[in-house]
Amino acid sequence: MTQAGLDYAWPHRDLLGLEDLSAQDIRFLLKTAHGFEDVSTRSIKKVPALRGRVVVNLFFEDSTRTRSSFTLAASRLSADILELTGKGSSVSKGETLTDTARNIEAMGVDLIVCRHAQSGAAKHLAHAINCSVINAGDGQHEHPTQGLLDIYTLCKRWNLMDTMDLTGKSVAIVGDIAHSRVARSNIHGLQKLGAKVILVGPPTLCPGTFRSLGCEVSHDLDDVLPRIDAINMLRIQFERMTSQFFPSVREYATLFGLTGQRIKKARPELLVMHPGPINRGVELDAAVADGPQSTILEQVTHGLAVRMAAMFLCLNAKNRE
């Protein structure tokens, strides 16, 4: 073999979190995603790569974007897809997660895409069953495909698709870091590719303990804004907050919301990301969310390519075992 890199093989049958991946794994997955991107723009939006495979979407939490993205990604790869939700299934009759998954697996399933409110649920599942597992969000732990599509979006906007080396770039993640699986996946992924990560939020939602992950922690958005290349504005997850973490939504918006006025303190080329769904007027102003610096809709588009790549590589790795 004369071509460099051909001796590399994607080693993971499951995608549980970016913490488990090497920089080389992340770059290989994103390069593979680049090859999948054009499938969504042609007249026949389908390739036969996973023909005859069965993918199950097993979602125990509400989701629109991620779930439909996985469904569409699977169908563009010609896989069959089965949709299951926690509500209205045997789970509400008291069946355990493992039992549910084993029963689904017994139907001859190749891949389970799982979202669950419990951190570690995907890993638990991966140990319990033989088919591949992709984590579509587990509690406050990780949401690896979101982290990957965020990094993919940055690499594309920065013209770094060749190297995917983010050395010298600074990315701020703002908001409810403590409850956020998106933040954890981004922290691991961005740092592995060389970027500096700055976490910003009120001390109750952005505690200093995150410094142990190698991040800078700040409680002052205006101080951070002028020195970053991209900012990822997280949604305030009211559904995950069991007590009061800040005095009022209005105060939070005043201190940590990104408005058309505040963004003027940043570099003009600053990229604004958001994993969706947006609380308009809280973490993002309409003017910023819909402005030229916003990558929000690109992130959704890239999510498809990244999820196609993740399914393709995990199933392929299982195949090679």
Binding site: T32, H34, N316, R320
Partner: peptide, 23 residues
């Protein structure tokens, strides 16, 4: 043209298929 996704031996090969862009 990148034909990796159209190969008829994807479920049999033992090495890593590398998907590149079709342009």
């Amino acid at each position: 043209l990148d034909i990796t996704l159209y190969r008829d031996d994807l479920s049999e090969i033992t090495h890593q298929p590398v998907v590149r862009t079709t342009e």
